[in-house]
Amino acid sequence: MYIRQISVFLENTTGSLHSMTRLLGEHGVDLIALSIADSDSFGVLRCVAHSGELDRAMEALREAGYTARVSDVICACVPDQPGGLSRVLGLLDQGGISIEYIYSFVRNTGVDALLIFKLDDPEKGAMLFAENGIRMLSQEQVDSL
């Protein structure tokens, strides 16, 4: 139900994002989803990689002195059509679940848009999705993308 996400602390300095992504590239880590959130003084990069590359990515990051961590997020398929996302957000709203952040995959599977959700109550959120026929991808399914 959950997939693994890597997040990395970035200082707001020129080139910090570039050097980090280059590092992962050098270690053969392919990023299949990615987002950056920032405050006025720092940034947090979040990304999803194939599970076979996750340990290698974390090792490379820590070795290079980055603060990074792995956390669980929900990957949901949202119909790629007008009102698709709005319906999902409405469901969460009615369920009293708040979204810490949301971002979309780099790659698309065709009819559906793949979205990463970080919810304040992930268990309840996943149940709500399941009850309402919103498909969630497992880590294996993400790995096969």
């Binding site: 997040s7 602390f9 405050s39 720092f42 603060t67 990074a68 961590r69 956390s71 952040y101 970080k118």
Partner: peptide
């Protein structure tokens, strides 16, 4: 310095 214990994937927590 940002340590792993302080770090969160949610910006609001860090703020």
């Amino acid at each position: 310095e940002m340590t792993e214990d302080m770090f969160s994937d949610t910006v609001a927590h860090i703020v």
